[in-house]
């Protein structure tokens, strides 16, 4: 089945939650509301054998021109290994309450992808088993991939300060 028809079927099944269907360079994107995201992906996974989660990532639309929708989006890139179909879901996440349901129940592998998205965008995944920072240190300030994240901060990361202290301490041993 064509990805565009799957998207149409999705619209039939979840009429209130599908916000739009776009096509760019032959790839279909479905913009969805965030609440039934687990049900939508569950539907795609069981009904259309979309069993492979290619990628899950966040987007910050702060500086985008001509963008309609919320500030944050979570992208789910799904692929059906049997039918060889790509389909992309774009879940809208508002800035006021950056949270969405976790799909860890559907893919164990989504665990780390969601942690990464949380780390870099600050989007909270409800029901996630272990929502901690992953790429940046645990005591990092801010979420680096947000567009309003300062490229150059005014202070060093605390771990680096500790390291400098330690180096100064060890200096007496002529290291």
């Amino acid at each position: 089945m064509e990805p565009i028809r799957i998207a149409a079927q999705l619209e039939e099944k979840f009429p209130d939650s599908i916000l739009g269907i776009m096509e760019h360079r032959g790839q279909v994107t479905t913009s969805v509301a965030r609440t039934p995201i687990v049900e939508i992906i569950q539907f795609l996974k069981t009904e259309h054998q979309m069993n492979h989660l290619n990628c899950l990532c966040g987007v910050d639309n702060l500086h985008r021109t001509a963008h309609v929708g919320e500030r944050f989006e979570v992208i789910y890139q799904l692929y059906s290994i049997e039918n060889r179909i790509l389909l992309r879901l774009k879940a809208q996440v508002p800035e006021a309450e950056p949270a969405i349901d976790s799909i860890c129940g559907l893919w164990t592998g989504a665990n780390w992808l969601e942690r990464e998205t949380y780390d870099l965008f600050g989007i909270i995944f409800n029901n996630h088993p272990n929502l901690k920072r992953i790429l940046t240190p645990d005591d990092w300030q801010g979420h680096p991939l947000r567009k309003d994240y300062a490229l150059k901060g005014d202070q060093e990361w605390s771990g680096f300060e500790q390291l400098k202290e330690k180096a100064a301490q060890l200096k007496q041993f002529e290291f």
Binding site: N54, C55, C57, V59, D60, H63, R64, I75, Q77, T108, G109, N111, W112, L113, E116
Partner: peptide, 15 residues
């Protein structure tokens, strides 16, 4: 505007 890299090693280590 945004580039996301889906790297296999990340998921493999997650596994």
């Amino acid at each position: 505007y945004r580039m996301h890299i889906r790297s296999p090693s990340f998921l493999h280590i997650g596994a």
